[in-house]
Design a protein around this nucleic acid. Structure first.
Lengths: 196, 196, 196, 196
DNA sequence: AATGAATGAGCCTTCATTCAT
DNA sequence: AATGAATGAAGGCTCATTCAT
């Protein structure tokens, strides 16, 4: 019987391969042949399923976003207090899964690409807004609108900064220390520090 | 007009053109022709003066580093207290000059490239160590070794994070707000907040 | 028409085209585009099948060697006496097939290239050793070790010399005269002439 | 005072540099910059004195020919008998001076170029005719017209063959053995061997 | 006499993409 | 469903050559 229902499998394999390839190379500057080869198929098939390279990359990014999204939902579900919600969001963004170099390299590459590609930027905006809203929902009950906003911004910046530093590997903190650094910032805020 | 002594002028023009091109494109994925064209010369001349594309890019990065270095030295010179030293360093890294989108995009592009290119990574390491040492020299008298180290790390991460967010332009803070955000963090630390 | 199994055909066509191109030009200084064009394909395809220009050239030389090898084997098979073996080897090296200007130009070009390229030199060494061993196997029973060695050297030198003179076309002898010249040398040796 | 009469010095230096460069590279595929650099001048000056690369190369070849010519004249002057004349010609063509690898590589390179360039071919033809006439003038009194012609051809072929083998260095005979090989051929001819 | 400055032309090579099977 | 075949377009790099000084 002819192989049926291969499409989802192939798409998944290609996206996974793309993540690995991008992770290794540290940028989106990977060839379709390379990705397809890692997925065990021909480059022509990759085009067959995704259209153009750009589409495959966009799907890959979407995949990363979706994964982060599910992890976040799961983490928030078991968070009781407002503070716990904030910590959950921080924890997910700097979890072992997200903080592995290949994944980080992927994120970075997409950040770079987003400067040029509107669709990519739109995807990243979604992520940004979601992160912000998740942080705000935990912070607002504790700090008020203005300070919450400021704090969310600080946390987000720190996370992004830790990502980029981690990507370069040189003396970058591991996930645990990174989380500690951000939570330390949060703790100071919750303790009433800051401009407020 | 004399046709002699063009080399330094051309090198400068080519490096400036490279920064602009990289800034516009948001990555190192620019062509020699593009860069040379912006500098008003042929691609062949760019090769004549720099050898290979890689060399031109490395020189460009070196230029960025050197500029940041001079600004830092100047800023530190007029800093009186330890706290002022730290604020000076923050101020330079998020100065109008450094925080302009094209320059930032250049930095980012080099960060990405550093994942793959050892020479680039070495250059970035220099920057990282210099930033850290500058921060530490101001923090240590105020916070002690351990907390200084932590704080320096936090500040550096925040700066990098603000850079990357700024590169995407979407709703990113301007230089002034960015400085305020980092100084807020610093103030809390100096006020005795944090893990200590 | 089936579009499968083109590889061996294309490889053959490209190698043939390379021989013609090199023959016309008289050196390896031919472009991939030229070769590909003669084979009726794009330059990109030539790269697809051979990797780099160097590889195509090496394969081309290997092809020349292999052809000479087969012809030699065939000729030796029908050689009865020792003397006939020697004549067979001479005949093959200066056969109509080998003595055609394009083929000769190819050989010459490879000789030149071998001065610079170790892989090419290795290939030519194989040819040299094989020619010598073939000549020796016929000569040794008739002339003894030392004189055989000398004679083989003389024959080989004469053949190479005739090749190079033929390549220049100007007043060079045709295959028949060339063979006669070498056989004349051989006959004198067999008749007891020379230093012995 | 302005440097006067530099022209002949520069021309000589450039031609010498060309010989060295060609000898090292084993072909005419050398750059004007390389040659000029070896001569201690700019590439522009080489053009100033020679016009185009082709002209410099032609002059270089002419120089090689002229040198061989003078050596031949000198050698013939001290040759008494006809046989000695022939040996003198052989000796000059395979003298230490002519048989050094760089010079040989130069000759070979010009042989190759002559396939394409009419002017080069004309120069080589001069050499060929001169060699033939020199050999014939010594052989004719001893062997008669027909056999002389044949013998001259054989000697010339052997010399060319020894050159090419020498260029590849691999197990090629030194000048002395090479001379011995050709003289052995000559001796057999003079002793009455051959087709006659 | 001599050279730095500058370029056009050309070549190798890579790669995304299409197509027929 | 899958792939080998094939190519156009583009980029990096080299080099002979010209020109103004």
């Amino acid at each position: 019987m002819p192989k049926i229902g291969m499409e989802p499998l192939r798409r998944k394999a290609l996206i996974d391969a793309a993540i690995v390839a991008i992770g290794e190379r540290g940028s989106l500057d990977v060839t379709m042949s390379d990705i397809a080869g890692r997925a065990g198929v021909s480059a022509a098939l990759a085009h067959h399923y995704f259209g153009a390279k750009e589409d495959l990359l966009r799907e890959t990014m979407r995949h990363l976003l979706r994964e982060l999204g599910s992890e976040t939902v799961a983490a928030l579900r078991s968070a009781g207090s407002s503070a716990e919600r904030v910590r959950a969001v921080i924890g997910v963004n700097i979890s072992e899964a997200q903080f592995d170099p290949a994944t980080i390299a992927g994120w970075l590459a997409f950040y770079v690409e987003a400067q040029r590609s509107a669709p990519m930027r739109r995807l990243l905006d979604i992520y940004g807004r979601r992160l912000n809203s998740n942080l705000m929902s935990g912070l607002r009950p504790l700090l008020g609108d203005q300070e919450s906003s400021r704090t969310a911004e600080g946390i987000a910046a720190m996370i992004d900064g830790l990502y980029i530093r981690r990507a370069l590997k040189t003396g970058a903190p591991d996930a645990a220390s990174a989380v500690a650094l951000v939570e330390d910032y949060l703790d100071m805020k919750l303790a009433g520090g800051g401009a407020g």
